[in-house]
Simulated scan of single mutants.
Amino acid sequence: MAGWIIAAVLAGAALGAGASDRLAPLPPYGTAYTPTTVDERGLWQQADEAERDLRDSPAVVRDAALNAYLTKVLCRSVGEDRCRGVRIYVVRAPVFNASMTPNGMMVVYTGALLRLRDEAELAALLGHEFGHFEMRHGLKTFRRGRAIGDILAWTSVISPYSTLPVSLIQLHFAYSRAQETEADLMGLRYLSAAGYRPLAASRMWERLMAEDDATALGRKRHVTHHYAAGFFADHPTELARATYLREAAGADGERGDDSRDAFLTAMRPWRASFLADQIKLNDFGGSEYLLGELAGGQWTPDLLLTRGELYRERGNPRDLVSAAQFYQQAIDTGCTDPIAWRGLGLSLLRGQQEAAGRAALKTYLERAPQASDRAAMAMLIGEGGVQ
C-alpha cells in the first residue's frame, strides 16, 4: 500500500498541471535554460556530443534551402526570439518522427516531411518539438529518472517485495504521455498565434492512423485503435491526439493559413528521393495509402513512377501488369526519369512480353548511359557488348 501512496504523490506533482485554457496566449519567453548542477551539465555535454556526431553523419540532408525553409517556418510559428536557440537537422529516414534535445538540437526525419500536406502541418510538428524544449521536458525527464532510480534503490533494501517498483514504472510512462500531450497543446497554441490553421495538427494524426490501418491490412493484421495508451506507452495514442487536438482547435479550427504552395515548392527537389526511400520499407499497404493521399486524385509523374516501383517490388503476376501500366502512365504524362523505362522493361519481361520489355530497357540505357546496372540490363536485352 505504501508504494501506491508514494507513487500517487509523485504522480500528483508530475501531472497536476492542467490544460484547461488550452489556447490561452503564449507565456512570456524565457531564455534557454542554463544547466547548474554537475548532473545537468553532464546531460548537456551528452547532448552536445550527440549533436557533433549527428552534424558529421552522412544521414543528414545538407540542403541550405531546405534547412532555411524549416527554420523560417519554426521562427514564424514560435517567434523570432524563441527560435534563435534551435538548430534543425533533417535526417534521411523514411519514418514519421522528430525529436528535440535540451541543448536546442531539433531532428526532423524525411519520412515526416513526405507525409505532411502543407506548411501548417509542418508548423504543428515543429511547434510540438519546440514545446518540449521551451517547457524543459528533457531536463524534467532526466530529473524524474534520477528520482525514481534513487527511490528504487532504497526500496530494494528496505522492502524487497514492495509493489512500488511497478507503480513507479507506470508513473514514468504516464508522465511521458503527459509531456507529449502538453507539447501537443503548446504546439497548437503556437500554430494559432502564428496565423496557421489549427485543425492541421489533428488532421496530421488522423492520416497517420489511416496509414497504420493500411499497413496492418496489408500485412493481414487486425486493425484496432484505442483512446487509452498501454502500460508501457510513452506517447498518447494517435486516436487520443487527434481527438483532443481537434477539440482544442474549437470553432476556429478552419481559420488561418495553410501555405500549401510554399510547402510543396520547398519539398519538390527532394520528393523523388523521399518516395524512393519509402518504397524500401517493404510496406505495400501503408505506401499505397500514402501515395494516394499525396496524389489527392491528381497522379503526377513522380507518384505514378513510385507506384510502379511499389507494385513491381511486390511482384505478383497481377502486380506486374499494374506496374507496367503505372510506368507507362508516368512516361505519357511527362516523366523524364530513366528509371521509368527500366521499371517498365523489367515488368514487361517478367510478364512474358519480351520484345516490348527489351525495347523499354534499351531506351533506359540510351537515357542513362552511365547507369551502374548497365551491364546487367544489356545482358537482359541480349546486347552484352553494349558500351
Rank of each mutant, 00 (worst) to 15 (best):
T101A: 15
S202L: 06
R358K: 15
A295L: 08
A228P: 05
R136I: 03
T300Y: 05
I6R: 12
G138A: 09
H132M: 12
R136E: 13
R207E: 14
A368V: 04
L66S: 02
W44D: 04
Q278E: 15
V90G: 01
L23Y: 02
A17H: 13
G385E: 07
A368W: 01
Y33I: 01
M204Y: 13
G3M: 09
E180R: 10
A378L: 05
T36M: 07
D39W: 11
R52A: 12
R255D: 07
E121Y: 00
S372V: 10
T31I: 04
R260Y: 03
G16Y: 04
A124T: 09
T101K: 11
L264Q: 14
F274S: 00
S176W: 08
V86T: 11
R76E: 04
R314W: 08
R146W: 10
R255Y: 02
S156N: 11
R367P: 03
E121D: 06
L188I: 09
A262I: 03
E383M: 01
R177W: 09
L185N: 03
L199M: 15
L281M: 10
L152I: 14
S259V: 04
D213N: 09
A11W: 13
P25F: 07
T215Q: 06
P102N: 06
H128F: 10
G127Q: 08
R76M: 03
E247A: 12
L171H: 08
A112P: 00
T300R: 11
E182H: 15
T363L: 07
A295K: 08
L320C: 08
S57H: 12
Q45D: 05
V223G: 11
R76Y: 00
R221G: 15
E206H: 06
I169E: 15
E293Y: 15
R76P: 02
S99D: 12
L152G: 01
A240F: 04
L113W: 01
A19I: 00
E121L: 06
M100F: 11
A266V: 05
T333K: 14
A183Y: 11
A93F: 09
E211Y: 02
W4C: 04
P58T: 01
H235I: 14
Q329R: 13
A32N: 01
S156Q: 14
A124I: 08
R197F: 05
T163F: 06
L245Q: 12
L113S: 00
S287H: 03
A272H: 06
M209L: 13
M267S: 00
R84W: 05
L26Y: 03
C335T: 04
Q353Y: 05
T237D: 09
